[in-house]
Design a protein around this nucleic acid. Structure first.
Lengths: 225, 225
DNA sequence: GCGATAGGTATACAGTTGTCTACCTTTCGT
DNA sequence: ACGAAAGGTAGACAACTGTATACCTATCGC
């Protein structure tokens, strides 16, 4: 039975969702028993072996899913936000040759879209963040890779869309990595501390602005010297 | 047998160190069995009950230890670094009324001292970072609190030492939190990716500088408006 | 000196775990 | 149409788990 890589065996899907459920409640992937998993999924314990040969394998599948579900959509949303903001004229004070108001707008919108995404896929982010510093080196590496990919996307988009064009690629990537990292790790707080959501979002925005403004200023100084 | 809170029962200490060892190898606290723990510590399984009534309790003890061992020393080291840097005259370009060279120096020295600390207490930081986003809400909350305390220390010191005095307390605390968070979470990468240590340290420095410079600039703009 | 308490051990038990072997059913390629 | 493979189940086993009860020994206050 050759799957066209679209449709997944029912059991496999059930197991993955069971894992999401269990981890989203207070567990870590590494602490799951495969019997417990099968029980939660309503399957025979042995079914696990048919699809995975370790918990890490299941974790990798989850991570890949998460990444695929997020990367493209987020990218499109960011581009839309940028275009929408670019449609209007300059709307704020010019700082370092950058329209601060517009930058803030793109940033704000992107951050909000991201967190909306988080809200819509809580379990995915919970296991993602949890395993980012979790016990399994394999999963940690995989998640780092995902975050780097996000960062590359972001840097690329900013270059293409002409936001903060003054910065060189390397610096841009460094900042994007920081942003990607920060947003990702904030996800857990965002999900759990419902009352602080607004401020978490605002703080993320401020952090991003601070970072890019600071880097731009220093970059300008260095260039002038 | 009333302990003077200094000396800890031998078994308790052994259990805690056993936990450190196990978690430092690829485990999470939540996945430890108390039998496994006792075995590693060379003790009878029941001994665990004498000292803790859950894994969370043990985790809290570990976190408290870590915090105590770190907070004061780090603070002193930071003050020393600041004074040392202040002894010399201005050594760099003035940006926003701040001696950039000196700020960089304090920052660099603080970051390096921090990472040296990490190197000297690897297991502690491994469990700390791991449980920061781990499965137990109790431990997560405790670790957040520790990080906030660090951030408060940092902000306070910066005020007292007159570094970036222009910023208001609230902003300062926000930035300090970001720094504290970033450093803490970088610890794991720093410990594991031995070949990237230099660049991780450098990136942390740059991030801090960028953040504070950016925030200062924006603060100045806002104040002028 | 003595009871109390903290620290540690031994044994036992029921429940759970990972894994193995064997068997059944559906689906597909040819 | 049929064999093969994928997906799923059943039962069994030894190993391990958390926990309870009971027992032992220092150390302390008094």
């Amino acid at each position: 039975m050759v799957r066209l890589q679209q449709e997944r065996a029912a059991g496999k899907q059930q197991l993955m969702q069971a894992a999401l459920r269990l981890v989203a409640g207070s567990r870590s992937l590494g602490s799951l028993g495969l019997r417990e998993l099968a029980r939660e999924a309503g399957l025979n314990p042995n079914t696990f072996y048919r699809h995975f040969d370790s918990l890490d394998a299941l974790g990798l599948a989850l991570i890949q899913d998460l990444s695929e579900q997020l990367r493209q959509p987020l990218r499109e949303l960011r581009r839309e936000a940028a275009q929408r903001a670019q449609a209007n004229g300059p709307i704020g004070p010019m700082v370092l040759g950058v329209d601060l108001g517009r930058s803030r707008l793109v940033c704000r919108e992107t951050v909000r879209l991201y967190f909306r995404f988080v809200e819509q896929n809580p379990s995915g982010f919970i296991v993602g963040v949890r395993e980012l510093h979790g016990a399994s080196p394999v999963l940690r590496a995989a998640l780092r890779e995902v975050m780097e990919a996000f960062a590359r996307d972001m840097a690329e988009d900013m270059l293409e869309l002409g936001l903060l064009g003054g910065l060189e690629g390397e610096t841009l990537l460094r900042l994007s990595s920081l942003v990607s990292r920060h947003l990702f790790q904030s996800s857990l707080d965002y999900l759990e501390q419902v009352d602080r959501r607004a401020s978490l979002s605002a703080e993320a925005e401020e952090m991003i602005i601070d970072l890019f403004i600071g880097a731009s200023l220093l970059d300008g100084l260095q260039r002038r010297a």
